[in-house]
Simulated assay, not measured.
Amino acid sequence: MLAYKRLVLAATVLACVAPLSVGAEERSGVTLTPSVVYYNFDHGVDADDAIGYGLGLGYRFDSPWGIELQYQSVDADLRSSTGELSLDQWRIDGLYHFEMQDKWQPYVALGVGQSDSDALSISTDEDFINAGLGLKYHINSSLAFRPDLRFIRGLDSDNTDVAFSVGLQFKFGGSNASRRPAKKKTRTPVELEVTRLDGDNDGVYDDQDSCPNTPAGRPVDASGCDNDKDRDGVVNAQDQCPNTSTGAKVDTVGCYETLNETVTIELNVTFDNNSDVVKAEFYPQIKKISDFMKTYPLTVVQIEGHTDERGKASYNRSLSQKRADAVAKVLVDHFSTSSERVKSVGVGEDRPLVPNDSEANRAKNRRVVGVVSAKGEKSGG
């Protein structure tokens, strides 16, 4: 009955271990396992439990499987009389390994063998089957600590012994055993709606915009960059003069328009009697010339100074020259007009605007005008 219970226990343990996931992380190679054995005899055997030794020689394949030839030797005291029972066992086992967890790797074993026992000068040979399980703690790739539990069933006596061993497994040669590839999970693709951004509102999305900070409303090309480099209203592809100054008038091909007539700009700039000082209140008047010349960059201006009739003609001419020079200086220094585009001349009293017959009229004649004319051919700067 006890033997039957032991077989049931062995079958139960194997059934619990079998569902473990299969893996093979231990490398293949030849194994040599010396061990210490604790042997528990069936109640039908007249012998006490005893400690012996064992030695296993095996081979681990590049798979979960291994094979091992095992020898065990035990000397036990007899229960009913004085004497010893000497037991020698040889067995060959198949080992099936499970997945390693934190260096621990369980296995199950099944095999056949033969035992030779000698007690009181009586020798007995018996074939047996054995089943069991064990663990390997892999200290490194060549050395493992190995506890092992076996149930040994005699085919003639129907006795079931239990052997528990603790050993060190040494491994030689071989290579890392292949791991069974994990089953890949199939993921269902998820469609995401992506909102494309246009930070500068130029009609070109940010991920394609090479110039992401163009001012709003500015025409751009396919890469999001300014489509009118000099901002003259003519796109780059048609602009024959791509570097015209801002605010200048251009023709249909992007080049400066030429002034076709001489333009006289009356400046409401007056001076105190015998003075050539330009008062700040008249700067906006001078700015009119600056603005006009920026619109037509291919122009020059002649600043003309005028006086009333009082005083000597030579003095008046000199004074009018000083007044013209003063206005020209404001135009160049304050409004950044190139000095090469500005000339000044003193007319004196020769060209009065109105008759010098009253103080009011004489004040009008003390004036400065700007005469703007073209200076050259069409150009784009």
Rank of each mutant, 00 (worst) to 15 (best):
R6N: 10
R6F: 12
R6G: 11
L7C: 08
L7I: 15
L7F: 04
L7N: 10
V8I: 14
V8C: 08
V8A: 06
V8G: 08
V8L: 13
L9N: 05
A10M: 13
A10D: 02
A11L: 11
T12F: 13
T12H: 09
V13K: 02
V13N: 09
L14G: 05
A15W: 14
C16S: 13
V17M: 07
V17Q: 08
A18L: 05
P19W: 15
P19D: 14
P19Y: 15
P19S: 09
L20D: 04
S21V: 06
S21C: 07
V22G: 03
A24H: 12
E25M: 07
E25K: 07
E26Y: 09
E26R: 00
E26H: 08
E26K: 06
R27W: 05
R27K: 06
R27Y: 00
R27Q: 00
S28N: 05
G29C: 09
G29M: 02
G29H: 06
V30Q: 04
V30N: 07
T31V: 12
T31R: 06
L32V: 13
L32A: 01
T33W: 04
T33C: 06
T33K: 07
P34L: 08
P34I: 07
P34W: 11
S35T: 10
S35N: 02
S35D: 06
S35L: 04
V36Q: 00
V36M: 06
V36R: 05
V37Y: 04
V37Q: 01
Y38T: 13
Y38G: 14
Y39D: 14
N40S: 15
N40I: 15
N40A: 10
F41D: 02
D42Q: 04
H43T: 13
G44P: 08
V45M: 00
V45Q: 07
V45G: 02
V45A: 01
D46A: 09
D46P: 11
D46I: 07
D46T: 11
A47W: 02
A47C: 11
A47G: 05
A47M: 03
A47T: 03
D48E: 15
D49E: 09
D49T: 05
D49S: 13
D49I: 10
A50I: 04
A50V: 10
I51V: 15
I51Q: 09
G52Q: 03
Y53V: 13
G54P: 07
G54C: 02
L55S: 10
L55F: 15
G56N: 07
G56S: 13
G56Y: 07
G56H: 08
L57F: 15
L57K: 12
L57E: 09
L57D: 06
L57W: 14
L57H: 10
G58I: 05
G58S: 11
G58L: 03
G58F: 05
Y59C: 02
Y59H: 04
R60T: 02
R60N: 13
F61N: 01
F61Q: 02
D62C: 03
D62N: 10
S63N: 14
P64C: 01
P64K: 03
P64A: 01
P64Q: 11
W65K: 06
G66A: 14
G66E: 01
G66I: 01
I67G: 11
I67K: 03
L69F: 11
L69P: 05
Q70P: 00
Q70M: 14
